[in-house]
Nucleic acid binder design. Structure first.
Lengths: 349, 349
DNA sequence: GATTAGCACTCAAACAAGCCGAGTGCTAAC
DNA sequence: GTTAGCACTCGGCTTGTTTGAGTGCTAATC
């Protein structure tokens, strides 16, 4: 169908232009910049059709047209050609993973910063450990002060949880080490969800001065089994204020306040299914505050069982193609790096 | 001097009113709301004097007057009466410290949230360990995967640093434990600044498969001695957008971007001397982006050697009295809690 | 001499009117 | 089916006017 083909082209041109300029686009613009074979009158007719079909909105009678969310959906699903990044940009991404410091939240933060600076959108990075991968592996009590110890719980997948617990009395560091060894041996392979119960059980047979510690362990284990989300980092918040859609301070504020609410962020980043890449447009994001934002997100398995979800948050008028390209490249680099380390290779810094 | 006394009263009234309304205040307002004995003409003369003395600015001829930074300085230094918080508010603060979870960054985050919600300013909480307190106490290598281990370094003061290191080859978890024990015994009391050197020295005599680990330890130790600042948390960013002074999106953006730059935040929170409470007004903050912000900050010793600095960031037209009151209360509650735990008391949750 | 009433003056903000230009929809011609 | 042409719409910009809050100054009053 020739006509439909043309309508698509025109719609695409409108979306492209609007993404670029944030200004309602008129028939004349399209005729001049994109479809020089056609007069503005023809474009006008087509645009009128497209509006009727629900792909375009007009803010008012004489202001050109703006793509609807339905249009963006079509754009993302059908019109996007995969695009590559320049080799400079690829290098820039790779460089995030280069440094040796593996401070725990550090990598996420670096990814967030890099993506924000490349795209001008806000980036959120969430690290999650699926329940099924939460199997106890090691436990270590490290004395911190006379009455407090740091409890480290490591799962088979390599996730680490640390917390400070009160000892409830003087316990020598030797004792702490011994207890750590024994418990680690006894509990190896225990699902995290069972851990609390097991601790409680063991507590029964423990000597008096250990009772308190065991109870504390039990409580912490319960906490540990709860929090799937181990790290959540947001970067490039101030970028959003560059976009004309947030010239209204109230809009900006309501959006920024979402970034400050952990639960909401987790919701935003948790895609329904198991899809690697997800694009959610406007109301599809699920939050009132983000009803005119879009979120492009990608999830990557980290090899050790953890799942890293990276989301780019911007106005619905988003550079979807670029966002996806950047995320794809991050994913590619990430798996490269994991492969390298998994195969035991290591370079000098 | 009676006259000077009156000038002070008027200046104070102007500042109070401006803090409340953010609107340039005119002679009539003062005469009606604050100094009913005096006519607006008299106030006008006084205000004219105050302007000449540098305490007031006038945005333009007919717009009332606005306190200068010099005025705020005087206000903070001389005019502030200590004010108390309501018992509800005191309870609200106490509640932050109540929960048992001592997840490491958790408390800072809770403090930041609470203070932001109480004051509507942005809150930053920084935890620092002074160099002099950085003395090695314990070290623990916890196996995470076959090729990686979690390195935990604890200082005498109870500060904890963790990082993932590559092992460079298979090392059994028993070996890791043994090494941890030996190193901990050998290095007890060593200043953190020496640690890297000591590791390097020990590496010389270590067996082949440990060489790599020792080198990694040495590098991490070097890192550890560098970063005084162990945690930095910011809350309530979006609050600032409520204030009319940030109705201009560009101003808001430049300020928000400061919050995203760790180094700048550390600078902002690092007070010159050893003062417990600090108020910095406008340019005194030291950053171009915060030239019309003020920062009220307080530092508290955490007992274990760490120092917690809490800063409230708002427009120069800040409720200084309230800010100080809230911080004071947090400090009081903090030391209470520390005393309780130090004395070994512990309550059931 | 300090205080106040009164008045002329200033200036931003709010409002209204008018123009401009980008845009549409429709119709008639190609 | 396409296009030229024209009437019409409507937000945004400009300009002019009004309004009101405010100042500074002067002269009268306490």
């Amino acid at each position: 169908m020739d006509l439909i083909e043309r309508k698509y082209r025109i719609l695409q041109a409108i979306i492209d232009d609007y993404i670029l300029t944030a200004l309602p686009v008129g028939s004349r613009t399209i005729s001049r910049k994109y479809e020089q074979k056609l007069s503005s009158a023809t474009i006008r007719n087509e645009m009128s059709d497209l509006e009727e079909l629900g792909y375009l909105d007009s803010p008012h009678t004489s202001a050109g047209r703006v793509p609807s969310n339905k249009a963006y959906r079509l754009y993302v699903d059908q019109m996007l050609r995969p695009m590559a990044l320049s080799s400079e940009e690829q290098a820039f991404i790779r460089q995030c993973f280069d440094r040796r410091t593996h401070q725990v939240e550090d990598l996420s933060l670096r990814i967030a910063k890099a993506l924000s600076s490349m795209t001008n959108y806000t980036t959120a990075v969430m690290t999650r450990t699926p329940k099924s991968d939460q199997v106890f592996s090691h436990l270590q009590l490290v004395p911190v002060t006379s009455h407090r110890a740091l409890l480290i719980i490591v799962t088979r997948s390599g996730a680490v949880r640390q917390s400070l617990i009160e000892l409830g009395g003087m316990i020598s560091s030797d004792e702490l080490y011994t207890v750590s060894r024994i418990l680690t041996a006894q509990l190896d392979g225990c699902p995290l969800s069972d851990l609390s119960r097991r601790f409680a059980a063991i507590a029964g047979g423990a000597p008096g001065d250990m009772q308190h510690v065991m109870r504390a362990l039990s409580m912490e284990a319960q906490q540990a089994s709860k929090d799937e989300v181990s790290a959540l980092v947001v970067g490039g918040r101030s970028n959003l204020l560059r976009f004309p859609e947030y010239a209204d301070v109230d809009k900006a504020r309501s959006l920024l306040s979402v970034f400050e609410t952990r639960d909401k962020m987790v919701d935003l980043l948790s895609t329904g299914g198991e899809m690697e890449f997800t694009v959610r447009i406007g109301p599809e994001t699920g939050l009132e505050e983000t009803r005119d934002c879009s979120i492009v997100s990608a999830s990557f398995r980290l090899g050790d069982g953890r799942v890293n979800t990276i989301g780019l948050i911007g106005p619905t008028r988003m550079q979807y193609g670029r966002a996806l390209a950047v995320l794809t490249q991050v994913g590619r680099t990430l798996t490269d790096v994991i492969d390298e380390t998994e195969s035991g290779r290591d370079s000098e810094a």
